[in-house]
Amino acid sequence: MSIPSFASELRVAVGRASRRIRAERGEAGLPDNQFSVLLWIEKRGPLTPGQLAELERIQPPSMTRTVNCLADDGLVSKGAHPTDGRAVVVSLTDQGRAEITETRRRRDTWLAARLENLTADEQAHLAAATEILRRLADS
């Protein structure tokens, strides 16, 4: 198989697997864009909507709507910015942390159940591919 054909097949397979895993959601059933915001705040700490918009590569008004939805659901809180009185800072609530934990648990459970159905050799191949895929993603 040529490299372009291999690249296309791999892209489709990884994309389908990723979509299937993302279909497993926590209690809130958040869309991917809202869950991604929770993950950014978990990783980086409290952020402004502008910073979140930059990280997600979307326009600030779209992020403001997303943050408002998350705040309405009790998953994030909005507080005063410590140095800029015009800005707000978005933080995770305990409910937001619980949603992240539950979504990860469901995704890991779904994938683990599929991995158990593979042969030991297939599991070993995927274990080796994991590091390679991580390197590709980080490049």
Results as ranks from 00 to 15, higher is better:
residue 2 S to P: 08
residue 4 P to V: 03
residue 5 S to I: 06
residue 8 S to G: 06
residue 11 R to G: 04
residue 11 R to A: 12
residue 14 V to L: 11
residue 17 A to T: 15
residue 18 S to C: 05
residue 18 S to F: 07
residue 19 R to Q: 14
residue 19 R to D: 11
residue 20 R to V: 10
residue 21 I to G: 08
residue 23 A to N: 09
residue 23 A to V: 06
residue 23 A to W: 04
residue 25 R to A: 04
residue 26 G to S: 11
residue 27 E to A: 15
residue 28 A to T: 13
residue 28 A to M: 15
residue 29 G to C: 03
residue 29 G to S: 02
residue 30 L to W: 03
residue 30 L to D: 02
residue 31 P to R: 15
residue 31 P to C: 12
residue 31 P to D: 10
residue 32 D to V: 05
residue 34 Q to A: 14
residue 37 V to D: 01
residue 39 L to P: 00
residue 40 W to S: 10
residue 40 W to Q: 15
residue 42 E to F: 00
residue 43 K to Y: 08
residue 43 K to L: 13
residue 46 P to M: 12
residue 47 L to N: 08
residue 49 P to G: 06
residue 49 P to K: 08
residue 49 P to A: 08
residue 54 E to W: 10
residue 54 E to V: 12
residue 56 E to T: 12
residue 56 E to L: 11
residue 57 R to H: 14
residue 58 I to H: 10
residue 60 P to Y: 02
residue 61 P to H: 09
residue 61 P to S: 05
residue 62 S to C: 08
residue 63 M to S: 06
residue 67 V to N: 03
residue 67 V to T: 12
residue 71 A to H: 07
residue 71 A to T: 10
residue 72 D to T: 05
residue 73 D to A: 15
residue 73 D to Y: 12
residue 75 L to P: 00
residue 80 A to E: 13
residue 80 A to S: 09
residue 82 P to S: 02
residue 82 P to R: 09
residue 83 T to S: 08
residue 84 D to E: 11
residue 86 R to P: 02
residue 86 R to A: 06
residue 86 R to N: 09
residue 86 R to K: 15
residue 87 A to V: 06
residue 88 V to S: 15
residue 94 D to T: 09
residue 96 G to Y: 05
residue 97 R to F: 05
residue 97 R to Q: 03
residue 97 R to W: 02
residue 98 A to P: 04
residue 99 E to P: 01
residue 100 I to W: 00
residue 100 I to L: 06
residue 100 I to Q: 09
residue 101 T to C: 07
residue 102 E to L: 15
residue 102 E to Y: 03
residue 104 R to L: 07
residue 105 R to A: 10
residue 108 D to I: 15
residue 108 D to C: 12
residue 109 T to P: 00
residue 110 W to G: 07
residue 112 A to S: 09
residue 112 A to Y: 05
residue 114 R to K: 13
residue 115 L to I: 15
residue 115 L to K: 09
residue 116 E to Y: 10
residue 117 N to W: 00
residue 117 N to D: 08
residue 117 N to V: 05
residue 119 T to C: 01
residue 119 T to I: 07
residue 124 A to V: 09
residue 125 H to E: 14
residue 125 H to M: 13
residue 125 H to S: 14
residue 126 L to E: 03
residue 127 A to S: 10
residue 127 A to C: 04
residue 128 A to V: 03
residue 128 A to H: 11
residue 130 T to N: 15
residue 133 L to Y: 01
residue 133 L to A: 08
residue 135 R to Y: 01
residue 135 R to T: 11
residue 136 L to I: 04
residue 137 A to K: 14
residue 137 A to W: 03
residue 137 A to N: 10
